[in-house]
Structures are given as structure tokens and as C-alpha cells.
Design a binder for these strands. Structure first.
Length: 313
DNA sequence: ATTCCTACCGACTGCTGTCT
DNA sequence: AGACAGCAGTCGGTAGGAAT
């Protein structure tokens, strides 16, 4: 696709404020009225490209720099769905390709991920199943930096990914390895592989991505500003000292081996509800009220669904 | 041809509501 | 309480464009 717009790159959008102001002007405009180059009619990736090209007026590129290098802002256009449980992310948010050969000996702070994605301009649109893309419209735009409590988890996720690479196991990476930041496959087909530093085995090409469960959390907390989600971790400080898993294990450890009845006595719970286990777990974690270990925790993206409490005795 | 960018697609799994 | 259908959520993979 030929560039048909005046180049404004490097001249107009050099501050975060000017970028955000421009981003907010697009709210409510059907994308068919934004698209100046017929880009929407093309296939995947069309919507983000329309906004880069026709709205911000820069040429789509394949550089590993943020989209607005002077301001250090990365543009991300991301769809959401409106379901009966409210708003949720339609997709994971894909960041940059992981260069196994270069990333492994960096720190999180010097990593390609952090360099590119530490500040993102998130622009959201509702994905409507039966409508053409031209009907879609951006309805929120925010500048997003990771809050401390999330950053601690993301940094831990980054380390988990890098540990596999350093162990010569990049070919065994999986999105299930981590909580918020994941390594998702990326490439034309299954033979899109690349070299890894500590093994002869070729590894699938992968990119950093923010999981859709975490994106749902971001949408609700920071983009559409809904009610605060339930939390276990009250202060980011604890996570700088311990990992998420260590924190949970430490909290639950004193109760290892106790029966349900012993736990009820110890924790002062007088209930025979079907949800007794989650009530007990909530008490162990020092969380107020009825915090489900299934639905509410997962909706908040805080706990993986595989955490369960055995129910007999 | 290769590498990275832009999201998007679809198969599976397992949760949840509803009916018996 | 058990069976089961439907659908939400997850994750492995794919499509198309531009630069080099």
C-alpha cells in the first residue's frame, strides 16, 4: 500500500499530551470515515494500520522502536466484547517479537519489551460480530503505564520466560507458563522458527503478549473505569520482596494439613455453605467478604483457575 | 527471503445455567 | 444431585503488509 499522506512523522506528535489529544478526537467516528487509503478492505491487522496511517499519518513500519519514539509511546488498538458479565477483551494484546539470541542476557529494565511497551496508547473499540469493520469506532483512548502491583507480576513473568530461554528450552515455551505477560506464537505457519542461544533445537517464533484475562482487567479498571476489582495483594511492596506464588504459599502454609472442621474453628467461620472452601481460603488470604476462588478472582485476572481446595474432610 | 509489524481465527476445555 | 447443552475463556496458530 503506497503512502498517500503528508509525512508528519517526527514533527507533530512528539509529546504524550499531543498524542493523547489527537487519539481522543477519533472517538465515535466510524472507521470507514477514517480510512483514506482503502486499508480497511484488506485482511488482518487492518484496523490498527488504518489508525496509524490515516489518523496519525505515519507509515506503518516494522521497527522495534515505539511508534512515537520521541514521546516513548507505543500505539495499540485493541477490541473488546460486551457480554453478560460486562466488558471483556476479545484478544490478547501482542507486543514485540522475542529475539531469543539477544534478550536472554538483559534485565527486565533493559529488555526489548520494556523499551517498546512501558507506555502504551490504548485505543479500544467494540468488536461487533455481525457488522463490517467500517462500522466499528474507537470509543476510549488512554495512556497506560503498568501500575506497580501489576509490574511486579509482569517482571516475574518476564523472568519465567527468560529462565526457559537460558535453560535451552525456548522450544518448550507456552502461554500457560505465566500470568499476565506471555510468549505467544507468531509467524506465517508452524515452520516459523528461529535460533535459541543454549540449544541446537529451533524454537517457534514468539512475541510478548498481554493475556486477554489481564487485558480484561485493564479495560475495566483503567479504560472504562469500572468498580475496583477484588484484590489479594494490597500493596505493591510485598511483591517486590516475594513472588506472587511465594506470597500465596506463605499465607496458606500455616493451615497445611488441617481439616475443614479445624479450619472453621481456627478461622472463626460458622458456615456449611457450598462455597465453604472459598470462604476459608478468603480468610486465609485475609481478604474481606465472599471472594470466590473461581469466578471473581478469575474475572479480576488475579488467580489462575487451577487453584482449588480439596473438599473432603 | 527474512523479519517485524498490524490483529485475527478457530479448536478445545471446562464452567454454568437449566432441566429432570 | 446428575446430565447436558451452550457458551465464555484460553491458547496455538494464521493472514496480510512493509522494510531490508
Amino acid at each position: 500500500m503506497k503512502k498517500e499522506l503528508e509525512a508528519v512523522e517526527g514533527t507533530q506528535y512528539v509529546t504524550k499530551e499531543s498524542i493523547l489529544r489527537r487519539a481522543r478526537e477519533i472517538k465515535g467516528i466510524p472507521l470507514r470515515n477514517v480510512d483514506k487509503t482503502g486499508r480497511l478492505a484488506t485482511g488482518k491487522g487492518a484496523i490498527g494500520t488504518v489508525i496509524e496511517e490515516s489518523w496519525f499519518g505515519y507509515t506503518p513500519n516494522s521497527e522495534s522502536e515505539p511508534d512515537f519514539p520521541e514521546a516513548g509511546v507505543e500505539l495499540k488498538v485493541t477490541p473488546y466484547l460486551r457480554g453478560k458479565n460486562g466488558i471483556r477483551a476479545k484478544e490478547r494484546l501482542v507486543c514485540n517479537i522475542i529475539n531469543y539470541m539477544e534478550e536472554y542476557d538483559k534485565t527486565f529494565q533493559t529488555s526489548a519489551f520494556w523499551h517498546k511497551c512501558n507506555t502504551m496508547l490504548l485505543m479500544s473499540y467494540e468488536h461487533l460480530a455481525d457488522k463490517p469493520k467500517g462500522d466499528f469506532r474507537i470509543d476510549e483512548a488512554v495512556l497506560f503505564s503498568f501500575p506497580d502491583e501489576d509490574l511486579a507480576i509482569i517482571e516475574h513473568d518476564w523472568e519465567t520466560i527468560m529462565e526457559k530461554v537460558r535453560a535451552g528450552r525456548a522450544h518448550e515455551l507456552s502461554e500457560g507458563d505465566t500470568l499476565y505477560l506471555a510468549a505467544c506464537t507468531k509467524g506465517a505457519n508452524a515452520s516459523s522458527v528461529r535460533q535459541q542461544p543454549f540449544s541446537e533445537l529451533p524454537a517457534k517464533q514468539r512475541a510478548y503478549s498481554l493475556k486477554s484475562s489481564y487485558m480484561t482487567q485493564i479495560l475495566n479498571k483503567y479504560i472504562f473505569g469500572n468498580a475496583e476489582s477484588p484484590r489479594i495483594i494490597k500493596s505493591a511492596d510485598v511483591l517486590h520482596a516475594k513472588t506472587f506464588e511465594e506470597y500465596i504459599i506463605d499465607k496458606v502454609k500455616p493451615y497445611y494439613g488441617m481439616t475443614q472442621n479445624e479450619l472453621k474453628l481456627r478461622l472463626g467461620v460458622d458456615s456449611n455453605a457450598k462455597s465453604l472452601n472459598e470462604i476459608l481460603l478468603a480468610r486465609m488470604l485475609d481478604v474481606k467478604g465472599r471472594i470466590a476462588c473461581t469466578e471473581e478472582f478469575q474475572k479480576a485476572g488475579i488467580i489462575p483457575k487451577t487453584i482449588r481446595v480439596q473438599s473432603n474432610g
